[in-house]
Amino acid sequence: MIIEEEKISPDIILDKPLMPLRDVVVYPHMVIPLFVGREKSKMALERAMAEEKKILLSCQKKSDVDDPSISDINTVGTLANILQLVTLPDGTVKLLVEGESRVDLLEIRSEDYFTADYCVLTETYNEADKEIKALRRTLISQVEDYVRITKKVPAEVVTTLASIKEPGRLVDTIVAHMSLQLSEKQKVLEMLDIKERLEN
């Protein structure tokens, strides 16, 4: 039996506000605070808040680019829900978002702020595949060893991992807590094959 981990969307959704991120890759189910200072991003947020409180997020290819162009933005990103938005005294916007789904940014436009047409990317895996179950167990065991040896990841993360049943979400959660290059984290975001994601 093939399990679909994310809602399939055959439709292309048009013209959703997009915010490029400098130094973070946001995965589905991940809740993370973001600090926003760029005017273009603030304008995208204003529109998102006026509509459904959803925004497209995509990591820049190079984090040191202050004013990214369309070609500086990765074309696989995340649709996120805005949970909280606070404007700080210095004008910076503090944002709390939760990733909802992986998306393919089909066409990115840049005017006053970035917008994009997108479609939701669907992950599939074979529930009966015993190798996936074995890979999941091995991965959790390896993370437990890593946490014990390095102390770089909070111990409570291991407890959380054991409760995550979906293998794709498990890998996303682990990678989000690891000290990896942004390009490596982006590569994981782009992997729709769950088995491949577990093996990497």
Rank of each mutant, 00 (worst) to 15 (best):
A162W: 11
K130R: 10
I149V: 15
I108W: 01
L139P: 11
E156D: 11
D90Q: 03
I132C: 07
S179T: 10
L121I: 03
V157I: 14
K61I: 10
L121D: 00
D172L: 03
L88G: 00
A155Y: 06
V175F: 08
K54Q: 12
P167F: 12
H177R: 01
N126A: 04
V97Q: 00
K54G: 07
D64C: 10
R137L: 09
R109K: 15
E111V: 06
L56F: 02
Q181Y: 11
A162F: 09
D64G: 11
T124I: 09
K54S: 10
D104Y: 08
P167W: 08
D129S: 04
S69L: 14
D72G: 09
I174N: 02
P154R: 14
V158Y: 05
V171N: 02
D90L: 03
P89T: 00
N74E: 07
P167H: 09
K165L: 03
H177C: 12
N81I: 05
L83I: 06
E144S: 15
T122K: 02
E131F: 05
D67K: 06
P89D: 00
Q60N: 13
N126Y: 08
D90M: 02
T115S: 14
T173M: 15
I164R: 01
S71T: 14
S69A: 15
T138R: 10
V157T: 11
T87R: 03
T150C: 08
C119N: 13
N81T: 09
E123Y: 11
V86L: 11
T78K: 09
H177L: 10
T159V: 14
R148E: 13
L88T: 01
T173C: 13
T159R: 14
E100Y: 02
V76A: 00
T173L: 13
S141I: 11
V86K: 07
C59W: 03
G99E: 03
T150E: 06
A155C: 07
R136P: 06
L121M: 04
I140V: 13
L57K: 01
I132R: 08
T138N: 10
R169D: 03
V143W: 07
D172F: 10
G77Q: 06
E144C: 12
D64H: 15
R109E: 08
L85R: 12
P68H: 12
Q181K: 14
L121F: 01
D67R: 06
K151W: 13
Y125P: 00
L161N: 01
L161K: 05
T92C: 14
L139E: 12
R148Q: 15
M178W: 07
L105Y: 03
V157N: 06
R137N: 11
V86P: 00
T122E: 04
D117R: 00
D145Q: 11
K165V: 07
L56T: 01
G77H: 05
Q84T: 07
Y146W: 03
D66M: 12
K130Q: 10
